[in-house]
Design a protein around this nucleic acid. Structure first.
Lengths: 332, 332
DNA sequence: CAAGCTAATGTAACCGTTTACATTTTATTT
DNA sequence: AAATAAAATGTAAACGGTTACATTAGCTTG
């Protein structure tokens, strides 16, 4: 492997000139530039970025901590993040934590040992589930929820949930079941808040029994739906806190002979690609996953470079998408 | 930021001793080990891995080139890859190429400039779409198809497709439509081969009109299905080359009032999570995505470390999964 | 107790860049 | 043509680890 000295020797210039020719060509005469390029081509020189990064004390890489890459919402986000990172000359280290704090620590250590310059955190954290990231390491929360402290990208979960429930109420629904995430999940907390607000404003009393706990997987949605099927007085609509659980729930309902939306309306959250192709297609809230990924990267780079942020928190708009899984409540 | 020399000074030993205490503790006396650990704790020392990697001329990172991370099959694969990499102390650099050769080159350059030690390639390559990876850089093809040259993980696409089509034939189907990938996609080529073989063995003539070209997206499956709906003599079954297109196709069929599987059977390929939850649930071929990810990583590490491979190519078994989207052909 | 051996430690070179500073070359001005 | 300013180039010292080699300490043995 040839190095910068080989190139310098061959080109008949100093190593400094070669280095400048590569990173500050405007500071080098056309003549030298030419000689250097010829020499580089001749020996097939490729700069050793490990050396460059070491010297500049920068990894030019960021870690993205994601609870589960197989979740389509996250993969969309990461795709946008990676796109932006590539544009800016940064690499994205994939940190699929599978929900374990140990793996998360492992990746935090990567930043502490300089293998990465910062972190994009996708796991929502609350008082219960602490964010273990030391305050001195550059980090952007892109989990999308409230209750973050550092720089953050989020949506207004509460307002979005409220919009959705208001819509169901406007269709005449008054018994609206909820398939929630785990009780202490910040997304679940915020969205439940929105649900309660909408109910309160419509003068509908809140019933604890109408909340079924899931964990954002299709399987859990499938199970949660049974709870509603077995009720003496069934809800006429289900507000699921993500699309996957809604898809799972719809399978249960159809198996039980419950028609959607005639007998029961179902709504989701996230607008993953499959929401459009489910049967019936799913009324849901679209999160701007790609916009969030892009902004998270921009924000993190600012933090890394020490630039001031114009705002600590960036709240992005969601879109309410009506499809065929919702309809007016039927008269009996 | 404290460095190894600070630690050495504080511990009253040489830098070599500190270095050894960290990477070869068995070569250091208990006494020194103790002093070093105390000093490390006192100054909060974290080794600079950029320096370590530079010195050892290893990035301890691999690039995974993936056409689209948002594809659930790929994200499953990558999750397993990352899991294994983490175990072995390697990082995974996400290289979502979005199908463009430029972006692919960008990532190949990362290896040439030492920012990564090797590549896992998920894009299938054929004569038409060349694999641009120079032969001297460690690489494992995990695209899952034939016609690779270097180390590779794959499945037997042809046999799997044949199994599927044989099954449809056994149900009495003789007019079997195909929703293919792009014509020159190696997966599509192999799977079509299997389709033809099954037909030939059953004495069913091959009809070109029964092949609709898609691009592995749900949208393309949705469109392709129209081609079959509009035929004077419709096929009684559709063999889709992946699950997404099958899901898209099923939506079209249902919209056209075609019952699945009574009027038309539909099959997929990959067994993504949604296949189980589609309506009806999808008969498909399960690819061992996680096993493939794990093996790809192991194989690549062997190549990087210069260990000999026990076999150039590793063909993993697929699983044939019968669900509710297929049934016997109806008598008229 | 000296010689010989092993284990532990230290010294300093090295990896391939970047860059501050010194020096030389070239261009501009008087 | 000399003086001055500006541009281009070169020299060598970093950066923070690892490790070959030299040295020293501790132990065994005849």
């Amino acid at each position: 492997m040839s190095n910068i000295r080989d190139v310098a020797r061959l080109a008949g210039v100093s190593v400094a000139t070669v280095s400048r020719a590569l990173s500050n060509p405007e500071k080098v005469s056309d003549d030298s530039l030419d000689k250097v390029h010829k020499a580089i081509a001749q020996v097939g020189y490729r700069p050793n970025m490990l050396a460059r990064n070491f010297r500049s004390a920068r990894a030019y890489a960021v870690v993205v901590l994601v609870p589960d890459i197989a979740n389509p919402f996250y993969s969309l986000f990461i795709r946008a993040l990676e796109d932006r990172a590539q544009q800016k000359g940064y690499a994205v280290l994939l940190g699929d934590t599978r929900g374990t704090p140990e793996r998360e620590m492992e990746y935090i250590r990567r930043v502490e040992t300089r293998l990465a310059d910062g972190i994009v955190q996708l796991r929502p954290s609350s008082e219960k589930s602490q964010n273990n990231i030391p305050p001195d390491i550059p980090c952007v929360n892109a989990c999308g929820c409230e209750y973050t402290t550092g720089p953050a990208i989020r949506i207004d979960n509460r307002a979005a949930a409220k919009t959705m429930v208001n819509y169901l109420i406007s269709l005449g629904h008054r018994r609206i079941g909820v398939i929630s995430g785990l009780k202490d999940n910040p997304h679940a907390i915020d969205r439940l808040e929105g649900y309660k607000e909408a109910l309160a404003e419509a003068g509908i009393p809140f019933e604890k029994d109408l909340i079924a706990e899931g964990d954002f997987t299709m399987w859990s949605g499938l199970n949660a739906a049974f709870q509603f099927c077995n009720m003496k007085v069934r809800p006429t609509a289900i507000f699921s806190m993500n699309d996957e659980m809604a898809i799972g729930a719809m399978q249960t309902l159809k198996n039980q002979g419950i028609r959607i939306p005639e007998d029961m309306s179902v709504t989701g959250f996230d607008d993953i690609a499959y929401a459009k192709y489910s049967d019936p297609s799913l009324t849901t809230i679209s999160q701007p996953a790609e916009e969030m990924g892009k902004m998270a990267m921009d924000m993190l780079l600012k933090v890394i470079e020490g630039e001031p942020l114009s705002q600590r928190e960036c709240v992005l708009p969601t879109e309410f998408i009506i499809r065929k899984s919702t309809g007016p409540v039927q008269k009996k």
